[in-house]
């Protein structure tokens, strides 16, 4: 409990750092957001109109005033107005987030459903040809960038079967679940493949470590069946590194998968941030980065708490 409080206490500090970093960085991008927003039409603005627009978005103020207003607004739940969308930043983010969250969850399900059994199988068949096979596939999987795999999948589908992945207007899960799933399954496989490969490798090596431990040998010598040794004694301990890896990876996926979203033309968080950076949409970039960093920290905290659940011997915060 103490640990939880102490960890939560570092959140504001790190978020403050993130907010300053992103605030300063996005303002160093050459060009201004009004020109980026209006394109060539910006040249038609009279100086007075331009000033009025700058005042409307609050970008006419000195930077520290802007920062102060921004932080003050956030504390009241107001993340500012997106220049590109003309709507509150938080609305835009929350509109994109379900897709990103769903994609992250689907990828994780694929990764665990494939990676865990494969890793356990390889560990229990250690140094046999089947173990080698699993390891080779996992190594290749880990070395395949998502954009290479994504393009390969699209190419195979279109050249081999004459079908294209379901693109077009994105259908949210609660409106059209089937269409939604058909749009997300390929991106999820693309992201889940490398993720599954990492899970396989980590699960295999953790399982191997645990299987050579004394307590597993004791369980075996007491006559416990091979199945019970693996599932009851070895697996819970082998899961700890898997949880760490899975958690960190999941945390990253919540930040949006820029490249995979780009390949499959999905309106997720990653592409939104990329576009916002390119459009110099200050408020949106700032809000999104802060949102992503916060999620990432929460996931990391949950991972730490999961350790305790898996291994009661671990007492967090005592080092």
């Amino acid at each position: 409990m103490n640990y939880l409080l102490r960890r939560l206490a570092t959140f504001p500090l790190v978020l403050l750092g993130v907010s300053i970093l992103v605030f300063v960085a996005i303002r160093m991008v050459p060009g201004d957001s009004i020109t980026a927003m209006l394109g060539t039409e910006a040249g038609l603005l009279t100086p007075a109109q331009r000033d009025a627009l700058a005042a409307y978005f609050g970008i006419d103020q000195p930077w520290f005033v802007q920062y102060w207003r921004w932080i003050g607004g956030i504390l009241h739940g107001n993340f500012g107005i997106s220049v590109t969308y003309g709507r509150p930043v938080l609305d835009v983010i929350l509109e994109r987030f379900p897709l990103t969250l769903e994609l992250a969850i689907l990828s994780m399900i694929i990764a665990l459903a494939v990676g865990l059994p494969a890793g356990i199988y390889a560990a229990t068949h250690s140094e046999k040809p089947s173990d080698l096979g699993v390891r080779i596939v996992a190594m290749i999987g880990q070395s395949t960038p998502s954009f290479v795999l994504g393009l390969l999948i699209i190419y195979t589908l279109s050249a081999g079967f004459g079908v294209l992945p379901a693109m077009g207007e994105f259908a949210p899960l609660w409106q059209d679940p089937l269409r939604n799933l058909s749009q997300l399954i390929l991106p999820a496989i693309t992201l889940g493949f490398a993720f599954a490969a990492s899970v396989t490798r980590i699960a295999r090596s953790a399982m191997l470590d645990v299987l050579s431990d004394d307590y597993v040998r004791t369980a075996r010598s007491k006559g416990a069946s091979a199945r019970s040794v693996i599932w009851r004694h070895a697996l819970p301990n082998a899961l700890i590194p898997v949880v760490t890896l899975g958690g960190i990876e999941f945390g990253y996926l919540l930040g949006g998968a820029v490249i995979v979203e780009q390949i499959y033309a999905l309106p997720g968080l990653g592409r939104m941030v990329l576009d916002a950076i390119l459009q110099r949409d200050y408020a949106l970039v700032q809000g999104a980065v802060l949102f992503i960093a916060f999620n990432f920290m929460i996931v990391n905290l949950l991972v730490d708490l999961a350790y305790v659940a898996l291994d009661p011997r671990i007492r967090l915060g005592e080092q």
């Binding site: 790190v14 978020l15 750092g17 993130v18 970093l21 990253y252 930040g255 949006g256 820029v258 490249i259 990653g270 941030v273 980065v289 992503i292 960093a293 990432f296 920290m297």
Partner: peptide, 9 residues
């Protein structure tokens, strides 16, 4: 702070 940013972003 740096780690809280996703690498590619």
């Amino acid at each position: 702070v740096l780690l809280a940013f996703p690498a590619i972003l």
